[in-house]
Structure formats: structure tokens, C-alpha cells
Design a protein around this nucleic acid. Structure first.
Lengths: 343, 343
DNA sequence: AGAAATAATACACACGTGTGAATTTGGGTT
DNA sequence: AACCCAAATTCACACGTGTGTATTATTTCT
């Protein structure tokens, strides 16, 4: 087993409380014994048991990141952002997956609550997650919300401007001359879905284009969602000429469907994604996409959580909105405006 | 705060030890009070504090996964595999990143040791990680090694047959008529590098091809490694006609370099990767690659760790070798032998 | 030098839970 | 009714650490 302060106490010949003090607020302990204790601690390779400390200090230097789908590169990038920040602060990060399932989300949050995590960063599934978040509140676990907007919960939030991003993507397609622009959206009720649909429709109506509900489908934010969405649209008699996918995985699903059916992109169908995941530029057809700074979102979320963990009670309710940018590659059929391997 | 057994004890009017027993081995407590306690616990929404339990029980229902690079989709897939298994067993998973840095790895392991994790799954950097693993041993933290082979450490291991996989890849290229086949390998001294180079050379010499050291470079297992490796080879006067990349990220880096320089794949250079990450089939040039069952590797590692956590002392030293398969797509210039969106 | 002030250390309890041993309660037997 | 045994419950301590308070050792002042 590990050496404890008791072991050190025995070795030096003092009580464990003196050792404890020597290793923390040194003020109350004699210069000489302090030195002896510190040295002995070093020699014996003592490291405090963070968990035991946690019992007293009410904090285990552990936070959790709860996301709907860890297989999604976007969330992985956010995770990297959170992780690198929290690591710098001396925290460890538990990675939890809700699998896009409300029950799993609820259960996971409860489990996490009772393992004395100090706080968490969460991407909630939808408004329906509010009770879970309330549970966190009751148990006084600080949390920061990322990438989703949830009404009625007063807590820091870091998210992209989904409306604006969707507007950019749709406007880009419209400006290329497309008039029948479809949108493969995410799961119903999630803010990411609502806001991106709103941005999409705003761009359309601004240009006098129909915002026909027929041109929007909803489904999971993964490849299967894109594959199914593409089938829905492209099997119709009057298929759209352009698709705005709610994220890059959906766009990849569209690519897969298109390849199967011999549909060319961008010649037959123009395609725009969202997120700009790492591989977007290396795809079969380099993907025009709305880039959101996932890593920075993670960073900021980490910082805000750290603040919340260290402010006694009332911390300003930050609401960080990150502005996305449009990265034009080939899938939209426009002239390439970005080249190079990385950056 | 959360309700504790003391709260329940007060509410029911018994001592906290009775409550504790009622919620665990019910045998010693009266039928009626047991029922009352259980009900009250339910009403009050009691959940045991896993951390406090950990102090006594020596176990926090937490494990860690330590990998060199969380940005690598391969490790993410392994992580998903470990996570889904451990979650089923009621464990949480801390995700730690060593950033391919020996010091970070060492520091991280020490930190983790002292937060009472029950065990860990680790992909060590190289033989140089042995001291760290010894540290785990001393502190009696069970661990399972994945995706790397380390000599002199008696612990369960789950890894792909790197030799065989590399052999498959190289043989495939050779059988397509290539005689100058280069290999962009991983970091020096890692088993993954050594074994794949060995498999590569075995395939070459079996066919009477030169195993000229000039055709092997080593570097990081990421896109930058591929980009640099490609430059090294393709700037030469006598460039190879085929490249076997030690993983898919490297292959993507090669794709990036090739695109920049107008080099066509597979016409000018045939390319084979390793791992078969999710996006490999959707790349600019669908990637011929050696598929390893990353998720299953994670699953098996999780199972072995669970065994190790629950066997008093001597558990058989499993050594699970997963056999990889070659997935032929377009980047190697061979006839396509696999199609479809997923599976 | 003796009392008072101060410095240094030990004691005891706490955090939330688990558990062996002691104690109380209840039921049955004589 | 006295007794015994078993069942049920409480006591007391443990895990590793932190901290208020009591205690002891040392210095300072008169």
C-alpha cells in the first residue's frame, strides 16, 4: 500500500496531526520538525490520498464531462479542450457517455453526483434534461453547459452561435444559385437543432426562398442520420440540389449514400457540413463546413468550471457565445478558399 | 448536501450501523426495520457515497485509461470499448493523456495511484515506461496493457498481431508489383514500431526484395508524422512507388502532402494504412488499411481488468492477441474488395 | 526565579461508510 | 419467575486526512 501520514508520523516520531500540518499550513509547526517531516515524506515517497482528503475537504479534484456521443469527433475535441485545461488545474476528468439516451443521462448524473466529483461539464440532450440539471443543483454540484442551450437553468454556458452558423452555411448555398436547399437536422427539441433550423430558414426567407417543411428532416447527429436523411431527400421525385447537414458526421453519411448511388458531389448535390472535424478536409470530397472552435469551447468551459469551483457562491453567469466561421472547400461546389495540410 | 446513512438513521430512529447493514448484508437486521430503512432510504433519495465507501472497501469503482494521444481515433475507439464494458460493471473511467511524453506519463500514473483508482488500462509509450508500471505494481494497482508489448512486466495484455498486420499490408503491396515499398513507422522503441517494421521486412525478404533501411522512417503516429514522412521519401531522386503507413493518421498525412504536390494516389504512389479508423473509408482516397478491432480490444481489456480486480491474487496472465485483417479499398490501387456505407 | 506569554505538539473528533464485538431486547424453556 | 439463548441493535473503532482545542515545552518579562 501507499505510505500515509501515519507512517511518516511513526518514522519521525510525532503525531499524525503534526505531519498533516507540516504538509499543509506549515505556520504552526517548528522549523526543524517541519524540515524533518518534509524530508521523510520525500524519502518515503509520500503522496496524499486525494480521496481521503476529499472526505474532509469536500472535493476530489475530479470533474466529469458528460456528452451524448463520445464517438463524435466534435465532442472528443471538446473533451480534449476541457481535459487540457483541467489537467493544468490539477484535476482529473471522468468521461461519461449518455448515448443520446435520456434515462442513461439521468442515471449517469446521479451516479456521478455520489462519487463526489467537484463539478461537471455537460452537453445535455435537450430541454428534457432540465430535471437532471436540477438534481445537480440540489446536490450543489457546479456545472457548465456546453454546445446546447437550455432555458430555465442559471449556470454558465459555452456554445457556438448555431443560428449564425446555419445562416452562413445556407446563405453560401443560396448564393451559389441553389433554390432547393434541404437540411438534415439533429434530434428534435435539442437547441442545436432548433437554432440551426432557425438560421437555415432565416437565410432562405431573406432571399425569398420557400422554407418548406418538406426540406427538413430530423435524426441522430451521426453517419446513420446522414445516410437516412440523404435517402429521404434523394429518393424523391423532386430532390433538392443542395444539402446543409447539421454536422460533419451527417455530411459523411450523405457522402456514403451518394457514393453508393453514384451521385456526384458537388456536381449533383452540393453539400455543407457543420463542426469542421479534423478529417473534414481529407474526405472523399473535401467538406465545406461551418467551423466551430471545439477545443476553445472545451477550454472556456474548463475555465468557467474552475471559476465556479472556487468562487464561494455567486459567480457571474457567463454566457460565452463563440462565433463560427465558414470554411469553403469542395463539397459545396464553390471555388476553393482554403488549402494546405494543417492551418 | 446528499443524504447520508446518518440522516436515515435519525429519521428511522436507529443507529447508523443498522442502516449500513440494512443496505448491505441484510442478514443481521430485523425484517421489519429492514423494510422501514429501505423505504426511508428510497423516499429520501439516498445514494451511497462511493468515495467514502472507497476508504473502507479499498475501491472507488473508478478505473483510468491512459493513452499516448486522445486525439487519435484509434484510442478513442479503444476508450469506447473499455468504457462500455466498465460502465456495465458499474465503474467510471477517467481518461488520461500522456501526450507521448514519458514524464507526463510518469506523473500521471503517480497522480492516478493516489486517487484510489481501482485499476487502469494503459497503452505505455515504450519499454522506458517499465519503471512507471513498476510503480503501479508497488502500489498494488492492477493494470492491463493494450496495444503495446512490454517485456519484463507480468500483467495481462491485449494487442493486435502487429507483425502479421504489417506483413499483410506489405505483402499486399508487393503482390501488386511494387518493389520499392517504403514504411513510415511510429516512434522509435515502441513495440508497435518494432513489430510492424519486422512484419514489413519479413514480407519483403520473403519476396526477395531489399529491406533497405533507407525506406523506413520513424516519427509520431499522427498526421504530421505522415506529412513529414511523405516529404522525406517523395523529395528523393528515387522515390518509392508504395508506402505502408504505420497507422491511418499517418496515411492521412501522406494524403495531405500528396494533394499539395499534385501527387496522385494510388496512381503515383500506392498507400496502405493501419487501424481502419471510422473515416478511413470516406477519405479523399478510400484507404486500404489493416483493420484492428479497436473496440473489441477495449472490451477485452475491460474484462481482463475486471477479472484482475476481483480475483484475490493470482489470476492467469492472459495474453490476448487479436488478429488483424486487410481491408482493400482504393488507395493501394487494387480492385475494390469492400463496399457499402457501414459494415 | 517565578509567573505569564507564546510556541509547539498531541488529543480528539470529524468526513461517510463498514464491521467485529459488546450490549440490549425478545422469546421460549424449565 | 428466573434463566438462557438467539436475534437485534448499538458501540466503538477503522479507513486517511484535516482541524479546533487542550496540553506540554519553551521563551520572555519582571
Amino acid at each position: 500500500m501507499s505510505v500515509t501520514i501515519k507512517d511518516i508520523a511513526k518514522a519521525v516520531g510525532v503525531s499524525h496531526s503534526t505531519v498533516s500540518r507540516a504538509l499543509n499550513k506549515s505556520s504552526l509547526v517548528n522549523e526543524r520538525t517541519l524540515a524533518r517531516i518534509r524530508q521523510m515524506a520525500g524519502e518515503m515517497g509520500y503522496r496524499p490520498n486525494v480521496i481521503a482528503q476529499g472526505l474532509k475537504r469536500k472535493g476530489t479534484k475530479t470533474i466529469a464531462l458528460v456528452v451524448p456521443d463520445i464517438a463524435n469527433p466534435y465532442f472528443i475535441t471538446v473533451a480534449i479542450g476541457v481535459q487540457e485545461k483541467m489537467r493544468a488545474f490539477g484535476y482529473h476528468m471522468i468521461l461519461a457517455n449518455t448515448n443520446r439516451n435520456l434515462e442513461t443521462e439521468s442515471e449517469e448524473i446521479k451516479l456521478l453526483c455520489h462519487r463526489m466529483i467537484d463539478g461537471l461539464v455537460i452537453c445535455p440532450l435537450s430541454e428534457a434534461s432540465v430535471p437532471c440539471l436540477g438534481y445537480l443543483r440540489e446536490h450543489e454540484v457546479p456545472f457548465v453547459i456546453v454546445s446546447r442551450d437550455v432555458k430555465g437553468i442559471a449556470t454558465p454556458v459555452v456554445l457556438p452561435d448555431d443560428f449564425y452558423g446555419a445562416y452562413l452555411a445556407t446563405a453560401h448555398l443560396a448564393d451559389l444559385g441553389h433554390t432547393r436547399i434541404a437540411h438534415i437536422a439533429g434530434p428534435e427539441k435539442a437547441s442545436v437543432t432548433v437554432d440551426r433550423i432557425a438560421g437555415y430558414k432565416a437565410a432562405l426567407s431573406e432571399r425569398g426562398l420557400s422554407t418548406d417543411g418538406q426540406l427538413v428532416t430530423m435524426g441522430p447527429l451521426d453517419m446513420s442520420g446522414g445516410y437516412e436523411g440523404a435517402r429521404t431527400f434523394l429518393e424523391r421525385d423532386d430532390p433538392p440540389t443542395a444539402i446543409f447537414a447539421a454536422n460533419d458526421l451527417i455530411a459523411i453519411g450523405v457522402l456514403g449514400y451518394a457514393r453508393e448511388r453514384g451521385i456526384r458531389i458537388p456536381e449533383d448535390i452540393a453539400l455543407v457540413g457543420f463542426d469542421d472535424i479534423d478529417v473534414a478536409r481529407y474526405l472523399e470530397v473535401p467538406l465545406t463546413t461551418v467551423a466551430q472552435p471545439a477545443r476553445e469551447i472545451g477550454n472556456r468551459a474548463g475555465e468557467l468550471l474552475y471559476e465556479a469551483l472556487h468562487s464561494p457562491s455567486e459567480t457571474p453567469l457567463h454566457r460565452v457565445i463563440m462565433r463560427p466561421t465558414l470554411v469553403i472547400r469542395e463539397s459545396s461546389g464553390a471555388a476553393r478558399r482554403e488549402v494546405g495540410p494543417r492551418n
